[in-house]
Computed example of a mutant assay.
Amino acid sequence: MMKNTEIALIIDSCTDVPEDLIESYGMYVVPLTVNYRDGSYLDKVTITPQQVYDRFAEEIPTTSTPSPASAKEVFERVVADGFSKAVVVTISSGLSATYELLCSTAGEYPELDTVVADTKNIGMGAGLSAIRAAKLIEEGVPFEEMAGRMADVVENTKVYFCVDTLEYLHKGGRIGLVTFAVGSLLDMRPVISCNEEGVYYTVSKARGRKQSLRKALSVAEKFAAGFSECAIAVVNGDAVDEAEEVLASMVAEVPNHSAVYDGQISPVLVVHTGPGLIGIGVQGIA
């Protein structure tokens, strides 16, 4: 558990933090939901990324925000564990209603002073902000400063990702029809990130998989170069070998990194991106 016993850290399951760090920092996780025709599953709790891949041939599921009941269950645990303050870190409000849900849930617990940070990011982009929050809490940063500090963290954190096919983002309503049609026809692969509103946008385009990964590396390295110190992360969706190569490149080309993370994306993100995602996260440490 964290050394600072006053402040709890609550995250949602799409704020992708490696499992060992969730445990070592004692983070509380509110799971999103993966919905199939035959029932719903709790993200990372009752369903794994591999189970989603295995069922793609028969059904592409939908996803939804955490249920109010599961959000309340986590807040109840935080209060029962004796915390009087909490920092809540969520995926982008521009991509999910999870932020709004956790804000309203926090309002139901007046005994718990709460700061809710909208990362304007997804996956490991949001995960890097959660890890930074854990470190700030551990360092003993006063609760009154956490909102301001987290605003800086969010501003200094980016994720760049490449998907193997645009089909899943398109089916989930996450990209426009024109982008999908042109991308499919010419094998144009966008490098996608989140803008200041926390909504997906195309950073650059390249023809074919290898070129798009190269472009993603290039923009990530450029962002990292703007800081004296940074944390880097590479996550994947059923693309472990490629992810290892990309991570090796980042480690070699970003000499100012002080922390490196890797891992698989959550089942909910698998639903929206399909197999073959590579995500590169960069966080400047002020």
Rank of each mutant, 00 (worst) to 15 (best):
M2V: 13
M2S: 14
K3H: 09
K3M: 10
K3L: 11
N4V: 08
T5D: 14
I22C: 05
I22Q: 08
E23H: 09
V29T: 15
V29A: 11
T33C: 13
L42C: 02
K44H: 14
K44Y: 13
K44G: 09
K44F: 09
I47W: 12
V52T: 12
V52C: 10
R55I: 10
F56T: 11
E58R: 11
I60H: 05
T63N: 00
T63M: 05
S64K: 01
A71I: 01
E73L: 07
V74Y: 01
R77N: 13
A80N: 09
G94T: 06
G94K: 03
A97Y: 11
C103N: 12
S104P: 00
T105G: 04
E108F: 06
D113E: 15
V115N: 11
A117I: 11
T119Q: 09
N121R: 12
G127F: 03
L128F: 01
L128P: 04
A133L: 08
G140T: 09
D152V: 10
V153A: 02
V153Q: 01
T157M: 07
K158T: 01
Y160N: 01
V163T: 05
D164W: 07
D164G: 08
L169I: 01
H170G: 00
G172L: 02
V182K: 13
S184P: 00
L185F: 14
L185A: 15
M188T: 09
M188R: 05
I192Q: 04
S193P: 00
N195E: 05
E196Y: 00
G198L: 03
V203A: 08
S212D: 00
K215T: 14
E221A: 14
E221S: 15
A233S: 13
G237A: 04
V240P: 08
V246D: 04
V254Q: 07
V254D: 03
H257G: 06
G263Q: 02
Q264F: 14
Q264L: 15
V270A: 07
G274I: 05
I278W: 02
V282F: 13
Q283P: 07
